[in-house]
Amino acid sequence: MTDARTIHDSHRFALTIERLCRHLIEEHGDFANSCLIGIQLGGVQLAERLHRRLRELGVTDLPFGKLDITFYRDDFRTKQGPLKAYPTEIEFLVEDRRVILVDDVLFSGRTVLSAMTALNHYGRPSAVELLVMVDRRFRRTLPIQANYRGLLVDTLTDEYVDVQWQETHGTDQILLLGS
């Protein structure tokens, strides 16, 4: 991969996580009817991090789930589409809940569209909100916007935004990779 540039270092990364948690508390209060669902893979890591920090901030019984959308993708028969599925674990009913859907990067919006289709198979949420770490502005191909965003970036279509995690990469950071 050529030309990797850090656009968010670990210090600012931690601040962003903190801000997103505070924003969620501001909107959801005691989270009485809310739940957090991460989209595999990157979204689950972000959701886990948020879940952990929210617990430290006193939000103790927020249901947390993982959603895999591989079987809902419309590009799985092209070479770009991933084929391997990861576990879906939603141990609670989403019926009439306020679902906070979490993904690491919002790009075309297709992943989120698939995730909403998948989510409907678990019940009818009262509302679905979207939280993303990185919003790649001006690159949407569907009318989908995030309610909570960590970082807004302007990118070219052939660039790639990589959100890296302490648990898997040794450090929290966001990289912009050239074409």
Binding site: F71, R73, L83, P87, T88, T117, H121, Y122, G123
Partner: peptide
């Protein structure tokens, strides 16, 4: 992959659009 499909067929709506 079958392991993930087993989760699918135990959902309330046992169907995916693949």
């Amino acid at each position: 992959t079958a392991r993930e499909f087993k989760e699918v067929i135990n959902r309330p709506i046992k169907k995916v659009p693949s």
